[in-house]
Simulated assay, not measured.
Amino acid sequence: MALGYKTRRRLSLLVLLIGLPLYIVVAVTLVGWMDRPSIWMELLVYVGLGFLWMMPLRRVFLGIGQADPDAPQPDRADRPE
């Protein structure tokens, strides 16, 4: 089932405003549980977790920054040149 443009837009806003901050808290907590990792290991974990949250949600964010494809398009004659 494909999500509509407005549904994907609302869902992406919800993910960015609520889901991402929660994911950041979880990532920082996981790194805090590690027994004094080196700075490079910490960086590797953060980069890995940064890509991990994004992969399942990439279809939600695809095309959100563009105009609504379902919206009616204005006629070319109505536009001033």
Rank of each mutant, 00 (worst) to 15 (best):
R79W: 05
D75C: 00
R9F: 11
L49Y: 06
M41C: 08
R9Y: 14
G19D: 05
G19F: 05
I39N: 09
R58S: 12
L52F: 14
G19H: 05
M41N: 13
Q73C: 00
F51D: 09
Y23L: 10
K6R: 15
V31M: 05
M41P: 00
Y5K: 02
G4Q: 09
V25K: 01
I64P: 06
W33D: 07
P37G: 12
P72K: 01
A2N: 10
I39H: 11
W53H: 06
R36Y: 05
T29V: 13
L30K: 01
P80A: 00
Y5G: 02
M34D: 00
T7K: 06
G32M: 05
G32W: 13
E42W: 07
P72D: 01
V31D: 03
V31I: 11
M34P: 06
L16D: 15
V60D: 08
Y46N: 13
P69N: 04
L62A: 15
L57Q: 13
K6G: 00
V28R: 01
P37Q: 11
D78T: 11
L44E: 02
M1Q: 09
L43R: 14
R79T: 00
R59T: 10
Y23V: 10
Y5R: 03
T29H: 05
E81L: 12
W33G: 11
L3Y: 03
I64Q: 15
R59P: 07
M54H: 14
V60T: 15
G19I: 11
L14Q: 11
A27C: 08
T29L: 13
Y46E: 11
A2M: 12
P37L: 11
D35Y: 08
L11V: 07
K6M: 05
W40E: 15
P80T: 00
S12H: 07
S38C: 10
A67E: 14
I64L: 13
E81M: 00
P56V: 08
I39Y: 07
I18W: 10
V26N: 03
S12I: 12
A71I: 02
P74E: 06
Y46G: 06
R79Y: 02
P74I: 04
